[in-house]
């Protein structure tokens, strides 16, 4: 687990990154609640977008390895590509797990109305997995960290809007509602609705199942070995 260890270290070594990683969930706890919508406080409603950005920022390390030729050195080192990727992704996931824990149980501690905190945590965790896989796929299209981040930003603002995270999905025209089903954020928004209004367990399983399915899809595309 050497790679895991060092990825973790690199991710939080820098003071600014440490601040960004752990200050934001704390701030998000204290954001106000909306009047009619969203039903969860704003910090929780928007946390999905935050998870997407953090996973891209974290997986920037892999892109950096590829650009600086470390990936080449690793390919002749006695470590398999699978092991390298798995340890990287595991480290990112661990950081996101910590953030989700801080957010959800911090909210419980300060008496925020979260309906079903445990299921909310599970939902955020599956979404984190999907979004890390998505980030892995995303960086495989680029050779420059900044450019990947900028294009990601423009894309996220659109899919967050269409996916029903920023505004309720019922407001969108029907065509866009149908398009939205293909976006992971749609399933996140649906999961949040389930947590608030309750419903059959089957539905929640479907939401998480879809997110995990997305994870596998993105992983398959993103895990191709790249040596530039």
């Amino acid at each position: 687990m050497t790679v895991f260890h060092y990825v973790l270290k690199r991710s939080i070594a820098n003071k600014t990154s440490l601040l960004i990683l752990f200050l934001f969930p704390v701030v998000a706890i204290f954001l106000p609640s909306g009047e009619y919508w969203p039903h969860l406080p704003y910090g929780y409603q928007y946390f999905g977008i935050f998870i997407l950005f953090i996973s891209l920022k974290l997986s920037g390390l892999i892109l950096e390895d590829r650009m600086r030729g470390i990936a080449k050195k690793l390919s002749i080192a006695p470590i398999s590509h699978f092991s390298y990727l798995a340890q990287n992704l595991l480290a990112y996931f661990l950081i996101l797990v910590l953030q989700c824990l801080i957010l959800v149980y911090g909210g419980v501690f300060f008496g925020k109305e979260l309906y079903q905190p445990f299921w909310l945590l599970i939902l955020f965790l599956t979404f984190s997995m999907a979004s890390i896989a998505f980030a892995l796929m995303w960086i495989s299209f680029f050779r420059n960290k900044e450019i990947s981040m900028l294009i990601f930003m423009s894309m996220i603002s659109v899919i967050a809007l269409i996916g029903g995270v920023l505004i309720p999905i019922e407001l969108l025209p029907e065509v866009l509602q149908k398009v939205a089903i293909t976006l992971p954020t749609f399933w996140l928004a649906w999961g949040i609705d389930w947590i608030i209004f309750g419903g059959e367990v089957k539905e929640f399983l479907l939401v998480n199942g879809m997110l995990i399915l997305y994870m596998f899809l993105f992983l398959i595309i993103g895990s191709v070995k790249k040596l530039h």
Binding site: S157, V158, L171, L172
Partner: peptide, 8 residues
């Protein structure tokens, strides 16, 4: 974004 808001 503005176009989406136009429809919304």
């Amino acid at each position: 974004l503005i176009t989406i808001f136009y429809f919304v």
